[in-house]
């Protein structure tokens, strides 16, 4: 039995870490202030999914990695300049919103349409990858809905590790409560895998990979389909930054012993 898969990684974009985020109201709903100026990265969990997909594809000859991403085209182009150097993939681009105010259901719907349109896709050999949450919407819902839309009923969330056995059975390690991992064995593809951080470091930038990817990335961006206008019944009543500021007592010159004593008293709840 051939163990060659179509590994489809769904990934949005997120603001580069450490950026200051500020919501604002627009006629079409909430948005991030200066969104176009905020440097963006591939959503961190989805990026882990991509690196894991690449790692898997290398082990399973004949496998191919697709990156399906919905974001504003200009932002997507920018992120691709860095990302394309990391691992080989074929981009399927959707020109649409990538901020956290988009409904997971609508995002899943766009992704499903784009995936269904991949020529020659054999869903029985599909590994559907994504992040278990996004760093923007933080809903943790898109991948499950997408899985359902594509008829994938073996779904796993918070995955840190995957192994494909010679029989085609798929072993997965999912994060569960208490810092533990539940280990499952699924008979065969298709499966949906919502990745936590995985176990792989970020790959180095490889100029040859970049050159190869760019041959498909720019055409994919050029023919990116625009996402349908939002028809969501999701309404934001309020979007705010947490304003709570604590009165911080700063102890500058307290001796170590006194700090330790105070901490122990506090820890013990006395």
């Amino acid at each position: 039995m051939s163990n060659a898969y179509s590994i489809i990684v769904c990934a949005g974009l997120a603001p580069d870490p450490l950026q200051r985020l500020e919501p604002m109201d627009t006629p079409t709903g909430p948005a991030l202030k200066n969104e176009m100026m905020l440097p963006a990265v591939l959503d961190p969990w989805a990026a882990c999914a991509l690196y894991e997909a690449d790692n898997l594809a290398k082990k399973l000859p004949g496998s191919k990695v697709y990156l399906v991403s919905m974001a504003l085209k200009t932002k997507l182009q920018q992120v691709m300049m860095v990302l394309s150097q990391k691992v080989p993939f074929e981009l399927v681009a959707i020109d649409g919103p990538s901020n956290g105010f988009t409904d997971a259901r609508e995002c899943a719907s766009e992704l499903a349409q784009a995936i269904e349109a991949i020529p020659g896709l054999d869903k029985d050999k599909m590994l559907l990858f994504g992040g278990w949450e996004s760093a923007t919407r933080a809903a943790g819902a898109t991948m499950q809905i997408l899985g359902e839309k594509l008829g994938v009923v073996d779904q796993f969330q918070g995955v840190d590790k995957i192994e494909i056995e010679p029989s085609g059975a798929i072993k997965l390690w999912e994060r569960v409560e208490g810092g533990k991992q539940q280990v499952s064995l699924c008979e065969s593809a298709p499966v949906m895998v919502g990745w936590a951080t995985g176990e792989l470091p970020e790959p180095p930038n490889n100029p040859q990979v970049g050159m190869a990817n760019m041959r498909t990335v720019m055409p994919a961006l050029q023919k990116a389909k625009s996402a349908a206008a939002s028809s969501s019944a999701l309404k934001f009543k309020g979007v705010t930054l947490p304003a709570q500021v604590r009165e911080t007592r700063i102890e500058k010159d307290m001796p170590v012993e006194a700090i330790a004593q105070e901490l122990v008293t506090w820890i013990r709840g006395n």
Binding site: N205, P207, G210
Partner: peptide, 23 residues
Amino acid sequence: GQFNQWVGMNLMSSGQVQIWPGM
């Protein structure tokens, strides 16, 4: 920064050159 991004995005969109940051 913004000017460089604007220029760079136009260049990349042209498909005639490849710019690789982080390298």
